[in-house]
Design a protein around this nucleic acid. Structure first.
Lengths: 210, 210
DNA sequence: TTTACTATGTAACCAATGTTACTGCAAACG
DNA sequence: CGTTTGCAGTAACATTGGTTACATAGTAAA
């Protein structure tokens, strides 16, 4: 495991910390679609993502959902951080967007390392900062953009995350993540196709003009 | 100053830290409406709010705005925290919602206290946690609620923050903060008045059914 | 092949919200 | 006092997005 840690976190953490992580952390691989955390779950370990992507979703009480943002390698879950400290339940749902590899760190180490390693503190602060900015970005999208712009942004995000110009989603899946209906998505996708920005197929979409 | 610090932060910080804050912090009073931070500003001090309320707004490039959340005593600005560390610009705008009193702490102390005081670390983590949850709440409102529900929630927030059942806002001001138009707000307010939930007057609104 | 299921396309309609335009009213001010 | 200015009420209309309903096409299972 130590090599994957070094590759992804070597520029952030000093060797002593990397070694500690290596000793107490457990390596974990999850397949695409794996539900890593649900609303109401208690958190007992903190994930350090070394490869793949995780999507973070917000659920409301009526079963509606909304995509908040993606985590990629080098990221950790800010929600987890505070859940660890406060012993509170998760407010969000996390699903593996692609196959992913992580190192799970027991939460008891959080406080210890925060006192001991400046680089750890910076990492935690930096994670919070990134997540707050991503939330702001999500708010911008919902508040200021129309559905067709949100859709285009969503597709571009998918391409960026998967590094692949083909998005393997059905219209219904997209509708869930943008919290709208399938018909609306089909309508807008067809409009984007007519504009030459995408190509529609069954079960996947090719993004042409990024 | 030390007494106001003790009253508002005594349950959070140990005496040694309170004394340090007292020594390096500067006391500041701002009037209602005072612009405390704008998008693009650099941050050189961290505010600890001891009385009053601050509203945090998001601006988009077209001059549109949206209310994110309020800070009250015992709170600090999570954006400031990361701006301090990362030396990045503010992404948000902060306006005094009421007259407010704060203690400004030079940002150099951030790192020093994070290493030295567990209570400081917890405070910072806790602040991030609160702000993230407030952002989630904002997202819920925009994504899942209709405008009339958002308006009612907004009015209740105002009452809670000001501890006063009279909201001193024009319809136009409310429209800006909810990112909609004056006409829409007037329409919905009138509906709420007909339902007996509020009373409309020139320049203020009385909330009856909270 | 026949059948069943899932994904997509599309029309018609509805509800919520945004826009424009005009009104009257109250406070402020000369 | 009359005039100006800002706030609020409201009608009429446009647009966006959500809903219902149904048709068609690809895919998998029987």
């Amino acid at each position: 495991m130590i090599q994957e840690l070094k590759d992804n976190y070597g520029h952030l953490f000093e060797d002593a910390l990397l070694n500690e992580i290596n000793q107490v952390g457990t390596f974990k691989e999850v397949p695409e679609g794996f539900k890593m955390m649900d609303v109401g779950d208690y958190v007992r370990a903190m994930p350090l993502l070394v490869s793949g992507a995780i999507k973070i979703l917000r659920d409301d009480s009526d079963g509606d959902e909304l995509l908040l943002y993606f985590l990629v390698k080098g990221d950790t879950c800010a929600m987890t951080l505070t859940c660890c400290i406060g012993q509170t339940k998760s407010e969000i749902r996390a699903i593996a967007e692609t196959d992913a590899k992580l190192v799970m760190v027991p939460i008891q180490k959080m406080e210890e390392w925060s006192a001991k390693y400046k680089s750890w503190r910076n990492f935690v602060f930096e994670s919070y900062h990134s997540r707050l900015n991503e939330m702001l970005d999500t708010i911008d999208s919902i508040a200021f953009l129309k559905m067709d712009e949100r859709l285009l942004k969503y597709l571009n995000e998918k391409v960026r995350i998967s590094k692949n110009a083909t998005v393997h989603s059905t219209h219904q899946e997209i509708a869930y993540e943008l919290h709208t209906s399938r018909v609306v998505i089909s309508r807008l996708l067809k409009k984007l196709e007519n504009l030459g920005k995408i190509e529609l197929h069954r079960n996947y979409i090719t993004i042409k003009d990024i």
